[in-house]
Lab assay of single mutants.
Amino acid sequence: MEVRTIKVFTTVDNINLHTQVVDMSMTYGQQFGPTYLDGADVTKIKPHNSHEGKTFYVLPNDDTLRVEAFEYYHTTDPSFLGRYMSALNHTKKWKYPQVNGLTSIKWADNNCYLATALLTLQQIELKFNPPALQDAYYRARAGEAANFCALILAYCNKTVGELGDVRETMSYLFQHANLDSCKRVLNVVCKTCGQQQTTLKGVEAVMYMGTLSYEQFKKGVQIPCTCGKQATKYLVQQESPFVMMSAPPAQYELKHGTFTCASEYTGNYQCGHYKHITSKETLYCIDGALLTKSSEYKGPITDVFYKENSYTTTIK
Rank of each mutant, 00 (worst) to 15 (best):
residue 19 T to G: 12
residue 189 V to H: 12
residue 157 N to K: 14
residue 156 C to Q: 07
residue 153 L to N: 00
residue 18 H to R: 12
residue 273 H to C: 06
residue 67 V to K: 13
residue 278 T to I: 09
residue 217 F to M: 11
residue 72 Y to C: 08
residue 115 A to T: 14
residue 196 Q to F: 13
residue 198 T to C: 08
residue 126 L to H: 02
residue 148 F to P: 04
residue 219 K to Y: 01
residue 45 I to L: 13
residue 15 I to G: 14
residue 107 W to N: 03
residue 15 I to R: 12
residue 49 N to A: 12
residue 198 T to Y: 15
residue 224 P to Y: 11
residue 232 T to Q: 07
residue 185 V to R: 03
residue 126 L to F: 03
residue 74 H to I: 05
residue 99 V to F: 14
residue 152 I to H: 04
residue 100 N to I: 10
residue 279 S to A: 04
residue 124 I to G: 07
residue 201 K to W: 14
residue 53 G to R: 12
residue 261 C to M: 01
residue 182 C to I: 04
residue 116 T to A: 15
residue 125 E to D: 15
residue 131 P to I: 01
residue 22 V to A: 13
residue 228 G to L: 00
residue 2 E to S: 11
residue 303 D to M: 11
residue 279 S to G: 04
residue 265 Y to N: 03
residue 300 P to A: 06
residue 313 T to L: 15
residue 211 T to A: 08
residue 141 R to I: 10
residue 200 L to S: 10
residue 194 G to W: 04
residue 91 T to L: 04
residue 107 W to V: 00
residue 50 S to Q: 14
residue 14 N to A: 13
residue 208 Y to L: 01
residue 63 D to V: 09
residue 239 E to A: 05
residue 227 C to T: 02
residue 260 T to Q: 15
residue 169 T to C: 10
residue 289 A to L: 02
residue 208 Y to P: 02
residue 209 M to F: 15
residue 87 A to L: 06
residue 203 V to C: 09
residue 69 A to N: 10
residue 260 T to L: 15
residue 187 N to D: 07
residue 200 L to T: 09
residue 252 Y to V: 09
residue 73 Y to Q: 10
residue 297 Y to H: 05
residue 7 K to V: 12
residue 90 H to N: 08
residue 139 R to N: 11
residue 216 Q to W: 04
residue 164 G to Y: 02
residue 98 Q to V: 13
residue 59 L to F: 11
residue 224 P to T: 15
residue 176 H to P: 07
residue 245 M to L: 07
residue 2 E to T: 12
residue 313 T to S: 15
residue 83 R to D: 08
residue 297 Y to S: 05
residue 29 G to N: 08
residue 268 N to A: 12
residue 245 M to H: 02
residue 84 Y to A: 04
residue 245 M to E: 04
residue 191 K to N: 13
residue 80 F to I: 06
residue 195 Q to A: 14
residue 220 G to Y: 00
residue 189 V to E: 13
residue 85 M to K: 10
residue 59 L to M: 15
residue 185 V to T: 09
residue 209 M to S: 08
residue 224 P to M: 13
residue 103 T to Q: 01
residue 78 P to D: 15
residue 270 Q to A: 12
residue 111 N to M: 08
residue 77 D to K: 01
residue 51 H to N: 08
residue 249 P to W: 00
residue 52 E to L: 10
residue 215 E to V: 03
residue 278 T to Y: 13
residue 117 A to L: 00
residue 299 G to R: 00
residue 233 K to M: 15
residue 42 V to Q: 09
residue 288 G to E: 00
residue 280 K to I: 03
residue 261 C to Q: 00
residue 271 C to E: 10
residue 248 P to Y: 00
residue 63 D to F: 09
residue 243 V to M: 03
residue 243 V to Y: 01
residue 134 Q to R: 13
residue 313 T to N: 14
residue 125 E to R: 04
residue 105 I to N: 01
residue 271 C to A: 06
residue 276 H to E: 01
residue 74 H to D: 02
residue 306 Y to T: 00
residue 167 R to N: 01
residue 303 D to G: 01
residue 186 L to T: 14
residue 49 N to K: 11
residue 233 K to C: 14
residue 89 N to R: 12
residue 118 L to D: 00
residue 306 Y to S: 02
residue 247 A to S: 05
residue 94 W to G: 06
residue 184 R to M: 01
residue 287 D to M: 09
residue 218 K to R: 05
residue 255 K to N: 00
residue 285 C to K: 08
residue 138 Y to E: 15
residue 201 K to H: 15
residue 92 K to S: 11
residue 194 G to S: 04
residue 218 K to G: 01
residue 96 Y to F: 11
residue 11 T to A: 09
residue 28 Y to E: 02
residue 106 K to R: 11
residue 124 I to P: 06
residue 72 Y to G: 07
residue 273 H to K: 00
residue 106 K to V: 15
residue 69 A to C: 15
residue 290 L to I: 13
residue 94 W to K: 08
residue 79 S to R: 11
residue 95 K to I: 12
residue 255 K to Q: 10
residue 193 C to K: 00
residue 202 G to S: 02
residue 283 L to N: 06
residue 215 E to Q: 00
residue 45 I to S: 14
residue 5 T to I: 12
residue 227 C to Q: 01
residue 80 F to N: 04
residue 125 E to Y: 07
residue 151 L to Q: 06
residue 59 L to E: 14
residue 61 N to P: 01
residue 242 F to Q: 00
residue 240 S to V: 02
residue 101 G to E: 12
residue 166 V to M: 11
residue 120 T to C: 13
residue 34 P to M: 15
residue 50 S to L: 14
residue 178 N to H: 10
residue 170 M to A: 04
residue 6 I to T: 12
residue 112 C to A: 04
residue 247 A to I: 03
residue 43 T to V: 08
residue 267 G to F: 04
residue 210 G to S: 11
residue 3 V to Y: 13
residue 34 P to N: 15
residue 35 T to V: 15
